[in-house]
Amino acid sequence: MQIQLTVNGQQHSVDAEPGTPLLWILRDQLDLTGTKFGCGVASCGACTVHLNGTPVRSCSTPIESVAGGEIVTIEGVNDAVAAAVQAAWRERDVVQCGYCQSGQIMSAIGLLRQNQAPSDEDIDGFMSGNACRCATYVRIKDAIKLAAQKLEA
């Protein structure tokens, strides 16, 4: 079936079977490979994108459910919150292998959009669905706090 969707502000019409996860449309059809495949079962967060401004796991989001929706991926995210998060990530040198980090950043942006001054517990809770096998968690937490400071300033 043909499905209309908006990704990073651009309209796309994609041909896909119902049930196909948004993740694979983004990666294999639209060549937006910044969004990663880690588990396919909503258990790692590597595939996190924004659907109408809110983080969702694209591996478990059927394509037909996002018809007409606004999707933003790591390639397209560019507001002040995103800029602060990415800058904080670089300042703290968070990344190791980097494979989980698009998803971490997309979740962190989602967190800071709804909570400008998250506590440790807020961060633990909101980021609990984003796994990092390199265990960069100490720095992720630091960077989120740094980004919050940047946004406040």
Binding site: W89, V94, V95, Q101
Partner: peptide
């Protein structure tokens, strides 16, 4: 590798 790993490239 920090920049490329934080902007999806």
């Amino acid at each position: 590798d920090s920049r490329a790993k934080t902007d999806g490239t």
